[in-house]
Amino acid sequence: MRILKKIVHFYYEGFRQMTWGKSLWVIILVKLFVMFFVLKLFFFPDLLKQNFKTDKQRSEHVIENLTNIK
């Protein structure tokens, strides 16, 4: 428990005393937000997970795609 407290304090103090690093954290957080809450949600669905419920259906879809060549 004491070690855990020390670790939390270490991170807390590290972030509190941050100077130029704060602007980097802003960039990281904005970037992660754009990536996971904009790009992933609205532009990059996992098509097979979204369109099919089971792995069996996904397999059949891919086999269908791979074997029906025009």
């Binding site: 992933k40 990059f44 791979l66």
Partner: peptide, 24 residues
Amino acid sequence: AIGVATGIILEFEFGTNWSNYSWF
């Protein structure tokens, strides 16, 4: 800090743009 996680977008693209490949 600027570069971190930019590679994750490639994984998004596997699922959306390259689904046959990513399953295969």
